[in-house]
Design a binder for these strands. Structure first.
Length: 455
RNA sequence: GUGGUUGUAGCUCAGUUGGUUAGAGCGCUGGAUUGUGGUUCCAGAGGUCGCCGGUUCGAUCCCGGUCUUCCACCCCA
């Protein structure tokens, strides 16, 4: 066999034990909070039918889908003419009918429709699985990454929006990450597009104003013009984007003046008022802000949109989501509304690692290690080990009788908290020499005392 | 998908204006120290200088391609 270079594909990574322990710490907190709020776990396959995935994420999203090559002699079904035509998009349908999931929301919508009779509404689920995007990797941007989604489907109540904000607040509080939560509503954006007379250009308009704080008003206006938004409309947009004041003041201004003639716009304002009303009654660590320039690209959002960023590190959003009124519609189930947000575990990891947010004890999993002194001692230690494990303490016995220095070194590298030394003396006296690896102290104690101490 | 950037020991990086044997620190292995690790001292192992091709008497260095990294755009977790 030819010698292969050991490598993983672009934008993918291996995780070492030290990293996995920290990743699991993040997953555990997220999962625990999800369950506190009454969400139940599901999983879906890594791959979906291509038809399930395409057309849900906009043109850009379709481009980023990983497709899986069909098996068998798929070229046999294609005529020579079709091959010579070299129409990639047309040929794709012959070559590939499965794709790796791009997110967890669309597969979830498919799941809901497929299992309609097995679930009860409102259906609250969470899902922690990897997704794949054929993006150009950068820092905090991978081709394979884990999303942690929470969604409620089958309820229009804004209570769900409020609950999701609570979940976000609690998770980041528990992780110790400082964040900014921004909220907006697609209906307000639609209303604005409507009143400036460019209702059909809602998507390019939202994408452009999303960049306001990044590239400035001048460049945004340029982009709007390029996308065919009229000069008059751009002019009318300016005072709207310049709105200042408290959440209430902004919403009043929108309701009473700007969106007076837009039914959908006023509905969006109503929703925001109600949502912020709920939020006021919560005791949140971070107060979410109303950001009129927040847009978010995914095509399927129709109401509230939410995005969370780190205030300590420059990296893409850590969490994002929103309400989608008809995502199940394309799978044949009309008028079922859902809302959900997705936590990016990998970016959360990057922030926590960079800012030193991991508690120290997340780096160790073994509490006690027995030194190996030879065959007789091994047998003796094995029975002690069994007792210790039975009482819930993580413990191991070094498998080889090698120099003590090497065994201690192993324990040290692995951040083992205590080392037990049991040789002839200890065996005779039914004692264990217990060494604390942090302080270096050691004492001879009985098994019972040891278990009490480490429990 | 567009433009740029990076790649030398396990890790972080020097270096060679194209010329015999490519270096450091950390780490690793062994010893000082055969029941006490993280300190110290001594010794040692480890590199087709990302991969493929071209130019050249000769390439780790120049040129082309490719993979990878990071960055900006795009988009997003």
């Amino acid at each position: 066999m030819a010698k292969n270079e050991a490598s993983v594909p672009k934008g993918t990574r291996d995780f070492l034990p030290g990293e996995m322990v920290k990743r699991n710490y993040i997953f555990k907190i997220i999962r625990t909070v999800f369950e506190h709020f009454g969400y139940l776990p599901i999983e879906t396959p890594a791959m979906e039918q291509v038809s399930t995935l395409t057309g849900k994420y906009g043109e850009e999203g379709d481009r980023l889908l990983f497709r899986i090559l069909n098996s068998g002699n798929f070229l046999g079904d294609i005529s020579d003419d079709e091959i010579l035509e070299r129409n990639v998009n047309k040929l794709k349908s012959f070559l590939s009918d499965k794709g790796l999931r791009y997110d967890l929301t669309v597969p979830f919508a498919r799941f809901v429709v497929q299992h309609l009779n097995e679930i009860t509404f409102p259906f609250k689920r969470y899902q922690i699985q990897p997704v794949w995007r054929a993006d150009r990797p950068q820092k905090g941007r991978y081709r394979e990454f884990f999303q942690c989604d929470v969604d409620v489907i089958g309820s229009n109540s804004l209570l769900n929006e409020a609950e999701q904000i609570q979940i976000i607040d609690e998770i980041f509080k528990k992780l110790g990450i400082k964040i900014l939560i921004r909220i907006n509503n697609r209906k307000i954006l639609s209303g604005i597009a409507e009143v400036i007379g460019e209702a059909d250009k809602i998507i390019p308009i939202t994408i452009a104003i999303d960049k306001l704080d990044k590239i400035g008003p001048h460049k945004v206006n340029e982009e709007l013009a390029v996308k065919g938004v009229s000069e008059k409309a751009i002019h009318e947009l300016q005072p709207i984007l310049d709105l200042t004041g408290s959440v209430g003041e902004k919403l009043n201004e929108l309701e009473k003046k700007i969106l007076l003639r837009s039914g959908i716009g006023r509905k969006g304002v109503d929703e925001m008022k109600k949502l912020f009303g709920y939020l006021k009654t919560f005791d949140l660590e971070v107060d979410p802000i109303f950001d009129l320039t927040l847009a978010r690209g995914l095509d399927y959002y129709t109401g509230t949109i939410i995005e969370v960023n780190s205030t300590e590190m420059k990296i893409g959003s850590l969490c994002g989501g929103g309400r989608y009124d008809d995502l199940t519609g394309v799978f044949g189930l009309k008028d079922v509304s859902g809302i959900g947000v997705s936590f990016g575990a990998d970016r959360i990891y990057d922030v926590m690692e960079k800012m030193g947010k991991f508690p120290e004890d997340t780096t160790s999993t073994t509490t006690l290690m027995f030194v190996n002194f030879g065959e007789k001692e091994e047998i003796h230690c094995l029975s002690l080990l069994a007792e210790i494990r039975k009482s819930g303490i993580n413990a191991e016995l070094f498998p080889d009788k090698v120099r003590l220095k090497k065994q201690m070194n192993y324990a040290n590298k692995k951040n083992v908290e205590y080392v037990a030394l049991v040789g002839e003396d200890e065996m005779k006296n039914r004692l264990i020499t217990l060494k604390n690896m942090k302080t270096g102290d050691h004492e001879k104690i009985k098994l019972k005392e040891l278990i009490e101490k480490l429990s």
